[in-house]
Simulated scan of single mutants.
Amino acid sequence: MQNQIPAGSDVNRKGRHGYWYDGERIDRQARERAEARERQSIAEMDAMPARFGLCYFIGNLEQGLVKIGYSKNVPGRRNRLSGSIPFPIRVLATATGGMDREAHYHHKFKGADIGGEWFTITPAILAEIARLNATRPADLGRGM
């Protein structure tokens, strides 16, 4: 007797070659692989020397805005930005990895993007800022 599956079920379906597969398990495995690739990518960016530039989070927590960018001179970048916006800003966090890390964060936080590398602060962005501040040395320009 052949296995029976309820009609319309998308958890278990018969594959092209006559075997069954578990859609939830496949989705979970895909998420786990993506998370492992992200951890590997972050580890590689963490290992990059600061001379390649720093990815920065500059903004104002009270205003709920943060700019995620890349610069070889983060204090100078903050000074240039502060002259063009109507509220005080400070460096919230920095990380090695330069442009690669900047692109990673822009993709990761694209749901909070409001344009021009500015993002509304979300719990995920705050968590990343806290993680960076816990792991980065103070000499990388944090808190200026």
Rank of each mutant, 00 (worst) to 15 (best):
G141E: 04
I85N: 14
D100L: 13
E102R: 08
G69P: 04
E32V: 04
I58E: 14
M48I: 10
I26K: 15
H17E: 13
L61A: 07
K108P: 00
Y21E: 03
K67Y: 06
M99W: 07
G59A: 01
I26W: 08
S71R: 07
N133Q: 11
R136W: 00
V91W: 06
A138M: 05
A95N: 07
N3C: 07
P49H: 13
D139W: 14
G97S: 04
G143C: 02
K67G: 01
R90G: 06
S84E: 15
L65P: 10
Y70S: 06
N12I: 14
G76H: 11
Y70I: 00
M45T: 01
V11I: 11
T135G: 02
I125P: 05
G115E: 07
I114V: 15
D27T: 10
D46W: 03
R25V: 01
M1F: 08
R28Y: 13
R142P: 00
G141F: 05
N133E: 08
I58V: 14
G18W: 04
Q29Y: 05
P86A: 14
Q40N: 00
I26H: 11
P49G: 12
F52Q: 09
G76W: 07
R33P: 00
R90P: 02
Q40V: 00
R131D: 09
H106M: 04
L140A: 02
T122N: 08
T122V: 06
P88K: 15
S41Y: 04
R31A: 14
G111W: 05
A47S: 15
L132H: 01
G111L: 09
D139C: 08
T94P: 11
K67F: 08
A36R: 13
G98S: 03
F52L: 15
S82R: 13
